[in-house]
Computed example of a mutant assay.
Amino acid sequence: MENFYEVNGIELCAETYGDPADPAVLLIHGATASMLWWDSRLCSALAARGRFVIRYDQRDTGRSTSFPVGEPGYAMNDLAADAVGLLDALGIEKAHVVAQSMSGGTALILGVDHPSRVASLTFVSTSTGDEGLPPPSPDMPRLGTPDFNDPAAVEEYVVRSIEAEAAGHFDETSARTLVRQDMARAKNYEGSLTNHFAMTFDGPRNGDFGDLTMPVLVMHGDADPLLPLPHGEAVRDAVPGARLVVLPGMGHGLSAPYWDSFVHEVGR
Rank of each mutant, 00 (worst) to 15 (best):
E190C: 00
M199W: 11
P228C: 02
L217N: 08
G210N: 04
D202T: 05
P228Q: 10
H220S: 04
D211H: 12
M219S: 12
G221I: 04
T200C: 06
G210D: 00
P215A: 08
R205K: 14
V216I: 13
F209H: 06
M214F: 06
S192R: 10
G207A: 11
T213L: 08
A198M: 14
P204A: 14
T213R: 15
D224M: 01
K187A: 12
H220C: 06
A223I: 05
G207I: 09
L212I: 15
G191F: 02
P215W: 03
L193A: 01
N195H: 04
D202V: 08
Y189G: 05
L217V: 13
D202G: 09
R205Q: 15
M219R: 01
K187D: 11
S192D: 08
P228E: 00
G207S: 07
V216K: 09
H220Q: 03
G203D: 03
F201I: 02
L226K: 04
G221S: 01
A198E: 14
P215V: 03
H220L: 05
M199K: 15
G191R: 11
D222I: 08
E190A: 00
H220T: 00
L212C: 07
G210E: 15
P215C: 00
D202C: 02
T213G: 12
H220R: 00
P225I: 02
D202S: 06
M219N: 07
T213I: 07
A223N: 13
H220V: 06
M199T: 13
G221V: 03
A223K: 11
H196C: 04
P204N: 12
S192E: 09
H196S: 10
F209C: 11
T213Y: 03
N206R: 15
G203I: 09
T213N: 13
V218E: 04
L227I: 05
S192V: 03
V218T: 09
M214C: 15
N188K: 04
G203T: 04
F201A: 10
H220Y: 02
N195A: 04
L226H: 13
P225D: 07
E190V: 02
P204M: 11
Y189N: 12
N188A: 03
D202P: 01
H220I: 07
P204Y: 13
G221Q: 01
K187R: 14
M199R: 14
A223E: 12
A198I: 02
L212R: 13
R205D: 15
V218K: 06
Y189V: 02
D222G: 07
T194E: 06
T194K: 01
L212N: 08
P204K: 12
D222Q: 09
H196W: 01
P228S: 03
A223M: 01
F209D: 09
T200E: 14
M219A: 08
M214T: 15
